[in-house]
Design a binder for these strands. Sequence first.
DNA 1: GTGAAAGCGCTAACAA
DNA 2: TTGTTAGCGCTTTCAC
Lengths: 337, 337
Amino acid sequence: MASRSGLKSVARRAGVSTTTAGRVLRGERNVSEKTATAVKEAAAELGYVVNSMASGLKNSKSRLVAIVVPTFHGSVFSEAIEAAAAALREHGFQMIIGESSYEVDQEEEAVAALLARRPDGIVIVGTRHTPRTRKMLESAGIPVVETWDIADHPLGANIGFSNFDAAEAMGLALIKKGYSRFGVISGPAVDGNRALQRLSGFRSALRKHGLQEKWCEIVPYHHVLGNLAEGGRHIVGLLQKRARIDCLFCTNELSGIGTIVALRRAGTKVPENIGVAGFGDVEIASLIEPALTTVRIRGREMGLRSSQLLLKHIEEDEDISGIVEDVGFEIAERDSA
Amino acid sequence: MASRSGLKSVARRAGVSTTTAGRVLRGERNVSEKTATAVKEAAAELGYVVNSMASGLKNSKSRLVAIVVPTFHGSVFSEAIEAAAAALREHGFQMIIGESSYEVDQEEEAVAALLARRPDGIVIVGTRHTPRTRKMLESAGIPVVETWDIADHPLGANIGFSNFDAAEAMGLALIKKGYSRFGVISGPAVDGNRALQRLSGFRSALRKHGLQEKWCEIVPYHHVLGNLAEGGRHIVGLLQKRARIDCLFCTNELSGIGTIVALRRAGTKVPENIGVAGFGDVEIASLIEPALTTVRIRGREMGLRSSQLLLKHIEEDEDISGIVEDVGFEIAERDSA
DNA sequence: GTGAAAGCGCTAACAA
DNA sequence: TTGTTAGCGCTTTCAC
């Protein structure tokens, strides 16, 4: 079927060579009006669509950009994806997405699968990778942008923010508001991952005021992220068993939202009975009642900026490796704490 | 760079032919242990990743599935995408996504761009397409699944639900609750699109009870979808200018949520002062206060089922065209109406 | 168990 | 303005 509507059949139908047919369909100008029309008609009649595997192979470019995110769930990263995809589409690029599930091994698999498509550039959320991931990325010969963090040893360009600083700033802000007995909900904090950085930053803030959190619960990601309502209930259960606190810091936004909803349903008043702060900022964070106090992350900006850099490298042939941009963050003090 | 780590250089480094190297890397068994090890080592050292443009071209398959959704915004379709992507990944397939922005011309463009990658199958949200879109899809020679609606003339398989019936059921449910003075917020209702079907279904319910809506506002999509908070404020403005109603039906979920939030901020009590019902069901619909009464759509199921059908066609070579499945819907009566 | 050769559908370089 | 030729990086016969 594919062969029945290949360039060859279009050419045959229009009575020209495949070269000429290709030229017309690519929009080159040095073809006679008449020929062009004939080719276009033939193509339309056959429903012809170019085979970009073939053309990409020929010119060794795919007009594809890859992006690796920890998860699709919950719109945390989708705003960044959206912004990037829109910018790319304007330049005739498409996006392929991989999911790392917050695991470097999964990330490795995703990167391999994506690189197989020979993208012209790649954006990765995160700066921790397996050695093989780094190797593959280096050998790929394409521009790389790491994001959502500041890298110690960037693979290429780096558009991010300091997770440590952001969590510390939130800690300071909460202390300023008068809270002093903190509980923390964090995803698995390992190596130098973002959960750990956030935890460390928060603790640094407490230490500066001679404080220490009353307890810190490490919750598997599927628990906080898989299902908001269920995750929230889980956290409320935790609250009852642990030492009394006056403020709960959730190192990711989804657990913050889930917690607020679950607390409300359990009849606990936020922020009267307990303050809740989150990290990250999706649209719902400001829509729920009470609106979530959180660290506002510039996801959209990071997505956009990353793709802009890639496009600059690809289209203007300007090396972007080594570029580092800190997009910062902002403490959004709303009603929950 | 790509050539420096092509199959040829792996083969050279391992001292074998590209044929043999390829065999090893594809996991074929009829290779000596020793050779296999040498090849794998060479590949690892070079960070080799297969070029699927080349392999795909050779075997005319891409292990790629395309999906076209109206929008990425707001997780309406992302649950469906998520479910589909997960199922596909398990079978070694990747997904490429296109966005139609609720416009058939944009859809045509997206379909052309996606088909150029020679996906092995395609899922499209919606059943209305331009003639060229239909033609391209027909000539592509790949399985097609239309979804989120029931098609009059399916292009291939069809996994959906009746938007008319769903809206009618919601209308009936609201009337049963005692509402009788309805306002409607709808996206552009043209041809046989889903907005129009929902509107028609809702009106049918009213007619059955000798009622008629007090007013119906057609709001451009960017207004209700671009920004929840702003869209909501817009709707609240409308409410003040139009005839008094006791219940507002929003034919899409995002406007329902935006409306509830905006009304709450404006000091109007839902459902005491006015009932609000939506259409569609994302996670936040049940988390906001009051929880949104809405038509629950099986997005996740449609996404999953669509990809299962495609996989069946692709991997088991079983023709799926003509298969129609109505996954139905459900009225979720919550607190907002 | 291994390799040589042909070719997937397209485009770039060159020739006419 | 148009066509011929070669080859992108792989996989697939087919031969050894």
